[in-house]
Design a protein around this nucleic acid. Structure first.
Lengths: 248, 248
DNA sequence: CGTTATTTTGAATCGCTTCAAGTGGTGTGG
DNA sequence: CCACACCACTTGAAGCGATTCAAAATAACG
């Protein structure tokens, strides 16, 4: 089953699309050279499993391109996604040799890998890497905690609206479009993946998306192409503090 | 309202109960001295709010004694606990001046505080602090992700059993009792706090605790004193992989 | 063009919440 | 010392939101 594709490309760090957001962001040219010497690339097809929870992990990596999911599964099959890995996100934990979660590519995925031991040694002598990793981990912790609020307290409709808002916002900033008014994007996740993300069933996800469409909050073209005519309207549905109250 | 009590005690770092688990764990004597020079203590009464989300935080701190909760609240009052702060846990985020969550003392609480700016400067030159903070943050992230599985996929009964198991396990290791067979402890949380932790209502918490008692999984003396006659029995109810299967 | 995977929709059921009433323990003031 | 209020908690009954099971519709694929 889980084929691991061999390295295909080689990217120069200077022209790397995630150069300034990944774990290497703070590194100077010297440090970058050391990293470049030990790096190698791997690519995975959409749907391929990168690592199973419990597997030994001999490497850590940065997502260069594509999207992957981090998820946990109970014995009886119930699964919960606990993280969404986007370009520049870091995979693996220094100092741990067993994967704690399943990592699955949801699109074609390219990762910049480092063998774990050399990377850990480099980290000892290169504060910039540890510093950046701390920042990134703190950001992930914040994201996880926001997700806990969603999982514990939001209704199905609010959950869907929140997910759509996150994707819309990310796409908007990526394309340098102000996230006001109209936003258009493609869903990178299946209904089932959304359900795993939101702690719902795929039927409920489908129903709530239909409901948001019926109510004019979103428009659909096919299953995956979404138009949000009024971003503020979508944000109203998330249950979050829009900030758009008195002082906006 | 929110009175901040002034420093009362002064603890020598060498005899500090959290010396080897807190953010200062990896520091040598020199580094410890620098920290000791800038530290001060604060205590809060049970129920007191330490910080409101959005407040400016001029300090970071380690919990020395007592328990506090981290929680998020929506406009309409729904609240979700996103962290439980136990002795040695770290409060605040270097590089951020606004609190992201409400911090409330659930028991009498003592914290070892550092003004944020000097602490951040010290971190620049003291890799040991940043390294330890990274470890701790990664642990917290793992805990948060386990909590996401609980919030998203577990039933009310499993949620309660999981919470009881966590507290029982912590108390058992603290008192050096093997977490097999019988375990006795006191609940440090009200039913409402448990509900906020588990994404339930306090009525459901009460009902499920009663159900576990009826089924002989736990025994209750008063509202807070819990006896678990057979730890394995409780673990069976959590829905987790007990690992206690074939190889235990 | 038929086959398979994904998604939508419907109907019945279930688990948790909501609303409401009641219990037991603790502290306070008459 | 008792009446009273207050708080944390328990229990009951009704309602509702999400799930479950089932079937049909749509899109994707060889």
């Amino acid at each position: 089953m889980a084929f691991q594709e061999k390295l295909t490309t080689h990217i120069e760090c200077e022209s790397c699309p995630i150069r300034h957001r990944a774990v290497c962001a703070k590194c100077d040219v010297d440090e970058l050279e050391l990293l470049a010497d030990m790096k190698y690339y791997r690519t995975y097809d959409a749907g391929q499993t990168v690592i199973w929870s419990g597997d030994t992990m001999d490497f850590v990596a940065s997502v260069v391109e594509g999207i992957a999911t981090l998820s946990q599964t109970m014995e009886d099959g119930r699964t919960q996604m606990v993280g969404l890995l986007l370009p520049s996100d870091f995979v693996g934990r220094p100092g741990r040799d067993e994967a704690a979660y399943d990592v699955v590519a949801t699109t074609r995925l390219t990762m910049c890998c480092f063998r774990r031991k050399p990377f850990e040694e480099l980290m000892e002598n290169t504060p910039h890497i540890g510093q950046r990793l701390l920042q990134m981990t703190l950001d992930e912790l914040d994201a996880a905690r926001e997700w806990m609020l969603l999982l514990g307290r939001k209704t199905a409709r609010e959950k869907i609206a929140s997910l759509l808002a996150i994707i819309a916002r990310r796409d908007a900033t990526l394309n340098l479009i102000s996230p006001k008014g109209k936003v258009v994007f493609d869903l990178p996740l299946t209904r089932e993946a959304m359900a795993d993300y939101l702690g719902l069933t795929l039927e409920t996800v489908s129903r709530q998306i239909s409901a948001l469409r019926r109510d004019g909050v979103i428009e659909l073209e096919g299953k995956r192409h979404v138009t949000v005519p009024q971003m503020s309207r979508l944000l109203d549905e998330t249950g979050d503090d829009t900030d758009g109250g008195v002082f906006a």
